[in-house]
């Protein structure tokens, strides 16, 4: 659906994106993960034609580069910064964005109604967005990306700073969209979200794509060993292993009656350990 080939973008001496090549398949939810300043937003900007790459190409399957109006009509974006007008109501915001995509009349009205319903904002549709909670604003931001029913959605941290209820609504909406066959590129800092939602994940840092695969593949390849913690009355034990169950059985079989095992814990590798393993633990600003 979306093919990025050897994309490069620099701002002066700073290389924001350094030769990223990536293919997002039709109908999949692709998670793009990376620490702050990794190059995610620049990659997304180039993917929707907002930023011109220094080199490399972006291609939307069957449409071409997103430099023309027609191709941009295939993409819906929910930027990280809330791209809505506080002084307009939910309906007015969506009507404006719909008109920019050539919608009008009955069709626009129906779409606005449907999308507001989808994100759970129908009861507050005529209130000004400025009076919405953070979560409602995020949902409206997502709704604005859906108004023209694009086949490709770019959702840049759509759950940043929202309450659990709104997050749940957004995640459900993304799942529904995925079921409806939309292709979604999803950036987030919440690893559990990516783990739950994404068919495949790519980790990006310092402008380079470090790895791509399903969550299981990445965990398998880059997650490291499981950590087993054995708790005893007098002495605790902690070790890394590829076969935690076997190791625990061995420990329990040879346990000393004078110092019995009081607890066993297994910390399996997950996407977060993959992420930290790939990008390091140093703070990013």
């Amino acid at each position: 659906m979306l093919r990025l080939t050897n994309l490069r973008k620099s701002y002066g001496n700073i290389v924001a994106v350094d030769g990223i090549s990536l293919e997002v398949r039709r109908g999949e939810v692709f998670g793009l993960l990376g620490p702050n300043g990794a190059g995610k937003s620049t990659t997304i900007g180039m993917s929707v034609g907002l930023i011109t790459p220094d080199s490399g190409t972006v291609e939307i399957e069957g449409a071409g580069a997103p430099t023309t109006d027609r191709v941009r009509g295939h993409i819906g974006i929910a930027p990280q910064a809330l791209a809505i007008y506080d002084d307009l109501s939910g309906t007015e915001n969506l009507s404006l964005f719909g008109r920019l995509y050539g919608l009008g009349g009955r069709e626009l009205k129906d779409r606005v109604h449907r999308v507001l319903d989808l994100v759970g904002l129908l009861p507050r549709s005529s209130d000004r967005a400025g009076g919405y909670s953070g979560g409602m604003k995020r949902r409206l931001n997502l709704a604005a990306a859906l108004i023209h029913e694009p086949p490709l959605l770019l959702l840049d941290e759509p759950t940043a700073g929202v309450d659990p209820q709104s997050r749940n609504n957004i995640l459900d909406t993304v799942r529904d969209l995925a079921k409806a066959g939309k292709t979604i590129i999803y950036t987030t800092h919440y690893m559990e979200e990516a783990q739950k939602l994404c068919d495949r994940v790519g980790i990006i840092d310092k402008g380079k794509l470090l790895c791509v695969g399903t969550v299981d593949e990445l965990v398998m390849a880059h997650g490291g060993k499981s950590i087993v913690r054995i708790e005893r009355a007098e002495k605790h034990e902690r070790f890394e292993t590829d076969a935690p169950v076997r190791e625990i059985s061995r420990v329990l079989a040879g346990a000393d009656a004078g110092d019995p095992v009081t607890g066993v814990h297994i910390d399996r590798p997950n996407l977060e350990s993959v992420f930290l393993g790939m990008t390091g633990r140093s703070l990013r600003d």
Binding site: L50, D69, R72, I77, P79, A83, I84, L100, Y101
Partner: peptide
Amino acid sequence: QRGTLVRLRSAPVS
């Protein structure tokens, strides 16, 4: 600043 320009520019308008 508020990101609405991104939305305007990502729409099919020049």
